[in-house]
Amino acid sequence: MIEIRNVYKSFGSTEVLKDVSLTVPPSRTTVVIGPSGSGKSTLLRCCNCLEIADRGEIRINHRTIIADGKPLPDKELNALRAETGMVFQSFNLFPHMTTVENVMRAPVVVRRMAKAEARELAMELLRKVGLGDKADVYPSTLSGGQKQRAAIARALAMKPKVMLFDEPTSALDPELVGEVLQVMKTLAEEGMTMMVVTHEMGFAREVADTVVVMADGRIVESGPPEQIFTNPTQERTRGFLRALVDGHLAGARPQPPADDPLEALPGNH
């Protein structure tokens, strides 16, 4: 469970998060959407103290990891991070280790697990994400989708109680997105507590228990996906969803030729 209370965050003079409060209930999937620059990734990274929130409080499983700009002391923070899985947009696999070593290294180093046991755990997780046959190759030989599934297995090896996903499919070729989302869906169905920042509206609609819309560093609206996608109450949400649809349509079908090329541009953008 993640509780975010009145969090503020600035980079220099740019205020990225302005009084954000949000609860990610246990065994539920909360998807955060919103235009780029809305602060959603920063919010997620604050939950792991990869970014230090300037004000406010964040609690994970009822333990305060940061309050008023002061994170937990390093040792306790490490222990809490070990229980909070993080998946990055750019995978961040360790290129000098094979796939299975990537997955087993943290349990060995952090949990002092015996190597044989860690390898067994890693193999089990790799099979779970469909990479049992890729255990002994280096990440550079994997496709993007395989890399991200390996990264998910690596996070799961620490037996996290909470998973954070930071745009996990944004760096993938379109045909590889599905296999990663499928793994995430399975996790959600198993009752993992998940906070997902994504642009995949299909995933949000299908898997999310709650959809949170962010814009300009604030939470604009949140609710079950049916409500957000079919009956949003806020103009910002409507604008964002409309922009997405326009983007899809513009890519899907050719625009009718216009006498004045400027008229072909969608209005209001």
Binding site: K75, N78, R81, A82, S90, F94, R105, A106
Partner: peptide, 23 residues
């Protein structure tokens, strides 16, 4: 070395020293 490497190691619970040494 890409900053994400350190971040990934720390996010798995490694200390700064462990992340430096291992990754």
């Amino acid at each position: 070395i890409d900053r994400g490497q350190m971040e990934a190691a720390r996010s798995l619970g490694m200390s700064y020293r462990e992340a430096m040494w291992e990754v």
